[in-house]
Design a protein around this nucleic acid. Structure first.
Lengths: 213, 213
DNA sequence: AGGTGTGAACACTTTCACAGCA
DNA sequence: TGCTGTGAAAGTGTTCACACCT
């Protein structure tokens, strides 16, 4: 069945979305679902849903559809959600605080196990049970705590020096909130979250509609 | 030169990124830049940079490159950043609070002019100079305040009822933080920001590398 | 009949390669 | 010479349409 095949970024995003839909159906006690129905809830086409799923195997039954719980399990496994992940937050600023307090991460298997900052006034403070450490301790602490991924919520200026620590520690996954493209060694995965960029895409869309104001 | 042509999502994202690079170069006092250098800073190729820009016109000089300030101005105009936008925040929760306090929006031309929630205990409270209004007032207030875009930072359950107000008010741009695909009328642009989805894409990337755990 | 799984057609994006201007 | 602007080629992703299974 699976992989060594290249799965597209957008396909992975859709898998995430399918999983959310399945979990909703599960709560509602539904047993099976068709690609047709999944597509209706996810703004794609039925063919797209089937193709996406078929990249990883044949999970459905012809004439019947997919078994909700079974497909949800499969997707969780595919997305790496059948285990917990140990995550460090770098940057104890506003975005960092919102993320830690938000709680949605833990719910989905991502445990924040360490927090770092370079601002001496923040270091030592308690954040939801965790002590904010100095970024210079990153390598040591992230080793001790078996940190696998990093959430980078720091200003652009701080990126180069922080990334040095992160690289040295051998971190291989980064969720980047800094509005810049990170340069990372091969084998390190980066996902960018940039809210301002999204807003810019929105105002661009407006412009288009208005025939260029 | 421009439009009525369909510009891809990813091209728009890159334009945003180019603009950020240009602003950095401006601060450093640089006059011109080549597509080669731009590509180096943005993890694309020089050809990609040229193609993206050429979608909107010929901004460069052969043999010389692009004039930093001029290109920055052009991109701002293309992205709709040559004016300010009036934005409403719906959802006075943690994410909403982080966004409002963050300040990066105002800096780039997006002014939060109204805040809404449906939680009676939050309504009436002051948030950075703004009073939190009840969501039932959305239509009236967003009309008065000429709100153009909405930042939706609410739980999934609240989406349907809130979207009714948003639709009625004729809002045409939505930055959506709720982890669900919004159903909107034609002509309404939606950008999704979903941090958990990004983390899932990260752990998926891990899986691939590890040869499927 | 009903709905999956998938090759083949199509559409869109990116890269290549080079003509042409400063 | 140096670097842009752009058709044409290559590469990816999406949609179609139907064989096939239950």
């Amino acid at each position: 069945m699976s992989v060594s095949r290249k799965i597209s970024e957008s396909a992975v995003r859709r898998l995430s979305l399918y999983l959310r839909i399945l979990e909703d159906l599960e709560r509602k006690g539904r047993n099976t679902v068709s690609s047709e129905e999944m597509s209706g809830r996810s703004a794609t086409t039925a063919a797209q849903v089937r193709k996406d799923l078929s990249l990883f195997g044949s999970f459905g039954k012809r004439g019947l559809g997919y078994t909700v719980t079974e497909l949800a399990e499969r997707l969780k496994k595919i997305l790496g959600l059948d285990r917990r992940w140990r995550v460090a937050l770098v940057g104890a600023g506003r975005i960092g605080s919102a993320l830690v307090e938000y709680g949605g991460f833990a719910e989905r298997g991502y445990d924040v196990v360490a927090i770092f900052d370079s601002d001496a006034s923040k270091v030592g403070g308690k954040w939801g049970g965790l002590c904010v450490r100095d970024i210079s301790e990153f390598e040591a602490v992230s080793n001790d705590e078996s940190v696998e991924m990093v959430i980078l919520a720091i200003p652009v200026e701080a990126v180069p020096s922080v990334m040095e620590h992160v690289e040295k520690a051998g971190i291989r996954g980064i969720l980047n909130f800094a509005p810049t493209k990170l340069k990372v060694p091969l084998g390190v995965a980066v996902k960018d979250v940039n809210m301002v960029m999204e807003l810019e895409a929105l105002s661009f869309a407006f412009r288009q509609e208005d025939g260029e104001g």
